[in-house]
Computed example of a mutant assay.
Amino acid sequence: MLGDIERLVVTESPSADLAAVAHSAGVVAALGRAHLGADPELIVLDGRTHLRWRLGSGPRRVLLLAHHDTVWPLGTLAAHPFEVREGVLRGPGCFDMKTGLVMAFHALAVLAAPDRTDGVTLLVTGDEELGSPSSRELIETEARGCAAALVLEASADGGALKTERKGVSRYEVTVHGRAAHAGLEPERGVNATVETAHQILAVAGLADAAAGTTVVPTVLAAGTTTNTVPAQGRFAVDVRVRDAAEQDRVDTAVRALRPVLEGAAVEVTGGPNRPPLQRTSSALLYRRAQHRATGLGIGPLSAAAVGGASDGNFTAGIGTPTLDGLGAVGGGAHADHEHVLTAEIPRRTALLAALIHDLTEGSNR
């Protein structure tokens, strides 16, 4: 398994580099062929390469969901090479989420017999780190009708499974004012910087800590020169919510923004990007995983609610029971200290295999 992980990690695959992602898809396809004995379907959408293995001929029952793109630019390996030392594996994308992808291949290979994988689909996308712009419809289509979606994203702290993820909305608010000379006749202008400040405060006020809702103005720009009343300003907004009602509340409020200064105008683009993965969607699968972990002697498991989103938000959003965080145990996603604890890899792979077998057997445990 370490050799397979190395093979994927040294194949750099930044999401925005279409050629790199296509090359990575070829490496993933070869690795999957070696373990599953079958070629995937290569699905190219908007230039981004995704892979799909549909095992067996029966109705789709279980969706395994992974991605092979990363946030790391080409050349990162020079400063952060793949290495395994003292039980810790390092390298760009090892934790998020190339180890989880390797675990999926090995779990399916362990099950081996066709009747134990019949109805299982493994979908590996190539644009998750961008928000899955081309693959969302593909993911939702594959998830419909399945009894479960198992997401191979890395675990939460301490190896906890992710039983709840916040939904995500993203907006850009553009403020239109009127330019004028800042020294000679500022009164003839409509100051977009001042209007933008009003709007930022209004947006930030939509947060609700008690409900777990965060509304964070992020990237900001306004004006052109230091002696000109700014004619335009814009800022981005990141919203995270625990439930659909909160996502709707914030969306309605952001779209209802109105200018404070006479002569200014406010334009809002964007909206909900990922629905919440609520605990009700993961509860039954989490109990199944706990039962299997106990039987394997690798329990007890723990659960976590996290603010970050994944493609599991999409599967939960269409009503498919979803359990996330089944991949690597470690830490440092998107950071220089990204790492995986090697001792946990076989244990978590065994749990994944047992859970797939449980679901394809139709057990009610």
Rank of each mutant, 00 (worst) to 15 (best):
R7P: 05
R7M: 03
T11K: 02
A19G: 05
A19K: 05
A19W: 00
G26M: 14
L31A: 07
E41C: 06
R52D: 01
R54N: 12
G56T: 05
G58W: 01
G58K: 03
R61K: 13
H68F: 08
H68P: 10
W72A: 04
L77V: 08
A78V: 08
A78W: 02
A79Y: 00
G93T: 14
T99W: 14
T99E: 14
H106D: 02
A109P: 13
L111N: 08
A113D: 15
D115L: 07
V124M: 00
T125W: 05
G126K: 08
E129V: 09
P133W: 13
C146F: 03
E153H: 04
D157W: 01
T163S: 09
K166Y: 06
V168A: 11
T174R: 09
L184P: 01
T193P: 03
A204W: 05
A209S: 14
A210H: 15
G212H: 12
P217K: 13
G223V: 10
T226Y: 02
A244P: 00
R255W: 02
R255G: 08
R258A: 15
P259H: 05
E267F: 03
T269H: 02
L285P: 03
L285M: 08
T294A: 13
A305N: 01
S310A: 14
G312Q: 01
G319H: 09
T322R: 00
A328C: 10
V329H: 12
G330H: 13
A333T: 06
A335S: 13
L341Q: 07
R347E: 14
R347I: 07
R348T: 05
T349N: 11
D358A: 12
E361N: 14
